[in-house]
Write a protein that binds this DNA or RNA. Sequence first.
DNA 1: ATAAATAAGGACAAAAATATCCTTAATTAC
DNA 2: GTAATTAAGGATATTTTTGTCCTTATTTAT
Lengths: 153, 153
Amino acid sequence: MFSKATEYALRAVIYIAQKGSPENKISIEEISGAIGSPRSFTAKILQILRKDNRIIQSVTGPQGGFYMTEQHRKLPVRAILTAMNEDHILSKCVLGLHTCNELKPCPMHASYKKIKEQLIQLFETRTIAQLAHEMDAGTAFIKFLGKKKEKRK
Amino acid sequence: MFSKATEYALRAVIYIAQKGSPENKISIEEISGAIGSPRSFTAKILQILRKDNRIIQSVTGPQGGFYMTEQHRKLPVRAILTAMNEDHILSKCVLGLHTCNELKPCPMHASYKKIKEQLIQLFETRTIAQLAHEMDAGTAFIKFLGKKKEKRK
DNA sequence: ATAAATAAGGACAAAAATATCCTTAATTAC
DNA sequence: GTAATTAAGGATATTTTTGTCCTTATTTAT
């Protein structure tokens, strides 16, 4: 559904929301380790999410890292898609037709429409905080327990 | 949601289902023109769909081209995804976690699950024939009316 | 002030997806 | 059987996505 970059973004933000705060900032190292994403690529993605402090914040230096404010935690998950420039995936035509709309629907339009509406609803109403809380409660998980790269540079 | 290749595949198959028959085979030229896809890339995709006569059939030579049998028209739309090797998109974790399942759900799992079920249901129950019939009935459209490439070789 | 830790950012590399071109094979019309 | 038409298939090119590496800037601790 989404690109790898966006998948990593979603996982990273949820992780930061759960573990990070101004008093406890999280390093790229920890984040990429926890969510199972390539370290340097993740760094790039976090830069995008930090741009204009849209989703996350960061500081350099010792004890530096990434964190979120309460306000940012209240953002809908959709805000992450928007920051990653993949918000359109929720509403685009499933056959990729630019011309598809209510007046000139593609053959899948009517039936797929209901699903799109639910997708948008889901990403719009669920907040980053809610997802983080599920992890706190132990009812949801994001960690890769599996195989790690042997050596990382 | 799907790759461009799969979007083209869906459109091409629906078009062939509507217009093609053993008596009236459709050329790549016509297909790519009608669905607004790059000619040679579309040719590759049609080769994949024709492999083992899974979705479509073809013959070379004058009056040759692509067509479908009634049996193939009865296939669920999902068969196209399977042929294009993108069937997994319907059921994968929205965060891209291989470990995500009922026992170790990701934070989006429970709510996204319902949408996945509907997606699978949609692609499994709707047949290629049904989509073609909507186009016949004039209640659905696939054509690009828009700008075409100036010169095509 | 200096050293250490950390993200920022640029340049580059690798892989995958998308797209084009050319030659070959099959079929049909004549 | 020859020429014309069409898909098959291989090789290559281009673009996008994914990923790595190195240097710089910022902050903190000493």
